[in-house]
Simulated scan of single mutants.
Amino acid sequence: MKFESKKDILFSIIIIGLNTFLIGILIFGLIDGTMKSQGYIPMIIILAVVWLLFWLYFGTSYKLSKEDGLVYKSGPFRGKIGTDRITEIVKGKTLWVGFRPATSRKGLIVKYDKFNELYISPKTNESFIEKILELNSKIKITA
């Protein structure tokens, strides 16, 4: 089952605001002529950053299956964790440090192996937890 990532208003404002600022710099530089005189390298870098930020924003999703376990995609970052490796899921918290293939606050902290954590933000935490418990009922859910 596939779960799209929830889009938080704070994250949306940051991504759209930053991309608007970068595109504004690019347009101003093209109109002013400074981009052409400095070459195309700054233009390519700005467009690459804008593209990466939009890819992270629109390309974040999660998939649960019996064969692969939890598969996450967030732009170029991808990975999978077997459901048998997951020990605990903390609901409604935000992980501010560590790996976060997420686009929202108040998501799920997935604890796996001995000390590893992954922060995700499916659209509905409850349906994600319900589905993952079908795959592995031994997972501890805490709030």
Rank of each mutant, 00 (worst) to 15 (best):
L30M: 06
I31C: 08
D32K: 07
G33Q: 02
G33D: 06
M35C: 14
K36I: 11
S37M: 09
Q38S: 12
Q38P: 06
G39C: 09
I41R: 04
P42Y: 07
A48L: 11
A48P: 13
A48W: 13
A48R: 09
A48N: 09
V49F: 11
V49W: 00
L53N: 13
F54A: 13
W55G: 05
L56F: 15
T60R: 12
T60K: 02
E67S: 01
E67I: 01
D68H: 06
L70F: 04
V71L: 12
Y72V: 06
K73R: 14
G75A: 08
P76N: 13
P76D: 07
P76G: 13
G79V: 03
K80V: 12
I81N: 08
G82A: 06
D84S: 15
R85M: 06
I86H: 08
I86Q: 03
I89H: 10
K91G: 03
K91V: 15
K93Y: 15
K93Q: 14
K93T: 15
T94G: 07
L95A: 15
W96H: 11
V97W: 09
V97E: 10
F99L: 02
P101R: 12
P101L: 01
A102D: 09
R105K: 12
R105H: 07
I109G: 03
K111I: 14
Y112T: 12
D113S: 08
F115Y: 15
N116K: 13
L118F: 01
P122N: 11
K123H: 10
K123T: 13
T124C: 07
T124L: 01
N125I: 11
N125G: 11
